[in-house]
Design a protein around this nucleic acid. Sequence first.
DNA 1: GCAATTCTGGACATTGTGTCCAGTATGATA
DNA 2: TATCATACTGGACACAATGTCCAGAATTGC
Lengths: 193, 193
Amino acid sequence: MKIEPMDGTHTIDRRVARTRALLQDALIALIPERGYAAITVDDICRRANVGRSTFYTHYADKDALRSATMEVHLRLLSRRRVSDGRETGKRLFEFSLPMFEHADAFRPLHHALLATSGDTIHDELRERIRRTVRTELAEKWIGHDGVPVEFAVQFIAGAFLAVLAWWLAEDAGLPPVQVDDLFQQMAAKGIGP
Amino acid sequence: MKIEPMDGTHTIDRRVARTRALLQDALIALIPERGYAAITVDDICRRANVGRSTFYTHYADKDALRSATMEVHLRLLSRRRVSDGRETGKRLFEFSLPMFEHADAFRPLHHALLATSGDTIHDELRERIRRTVRTELAEKWIGHDGVPVEFAVQFIAGAFLAVLAWWLAEDAGLPPVQVDDLFQQMAAKGIGP
DNA sequence: GCAATTCTGGACATTGTGTCCAGTATGATA
DNA sequence: TATCATACTGGACACAATGTCCAGAATTGC
């Protein structure tokens, strides 16, 4: 197995490229079906029509394959962002549109990467939070500007869980009331002035 | 093994209670150390000083233990919210403060439940998004009202990923430009008028 | 105290992992 | 097209973890 040049200058053996592509595609195809955790190396190989021992000459394990797959596509994404000529400037969150566009173009991949099936540990809690937010918004929120309620639900629930996780990881202690204040404030007014 | 009454009316065998508590505590203690995925049933039992065969008389597998553990604590949370007498009214997101408070009171549990260690599938992407947001905010954002930059990073990154996942799951197609618009709008102005 | 229930440790079949190898097929190069 | 280097293959192996089962010991509820 030749070492792949970092700059992508010269091509690698066709067989290598073929095998890796088959394995990556197989993984992407399988994730929505059973969820990442339930997939075995053997599953991937059978789907890809690749010998199991071959798998291990390319990737150390299932996680390595996943990482490599992500790496390839996120690299594509960065390249696109640089080369598409939109001027980079003062507008906040310029990453978002290219990301949405890339996700749209590679739906199966991104769907696989973000599917709740990937890992069940957060899912129950997430769903619970979403339900709560949904209920509150339905009762007290006058949707405006054609923002779908469900969009707001996802936005708020996602932000909340991220903040909660961060706050718990940082032992440096804001008291609960204070984090909550920040959350309420940003949920209500956003990031702008 | 007696069936536990749904209403919690009468108590169960002391041994059962003891064993279950030991197992749940062991799981919570182990998650921050190795991450949920890497923990084996045997690990849990050794930590809890409980025979492995005993484990299986209480829970079908590791996931069942996790679910039960969450269930117990989320039940506590709902009960608290109802009974703490804060009037429920027009304010949005009343769930958040009780949740922050409960998380603070049961730090190890919630830390364990939300730790990125749980499952690695999203983590690389999450971290990447956070980095991007962090960079953009550092360059273009005049933090205000004493909102820590890192708080904003977590808030925005969390919201973005949740929205992205939802949009990909819903095949009903908003075009990328439109989702992005919604995202930008809500990130900037929040949910209020 | 006594019957009922739970805990225990060990054995077992099963599944998935990761390594290794000798033989075969295929691509790169000239 | 010939030849050499490299990649693929399938099967065997040791190992780790899962989930089931059991008979005996320990604890509990009454």
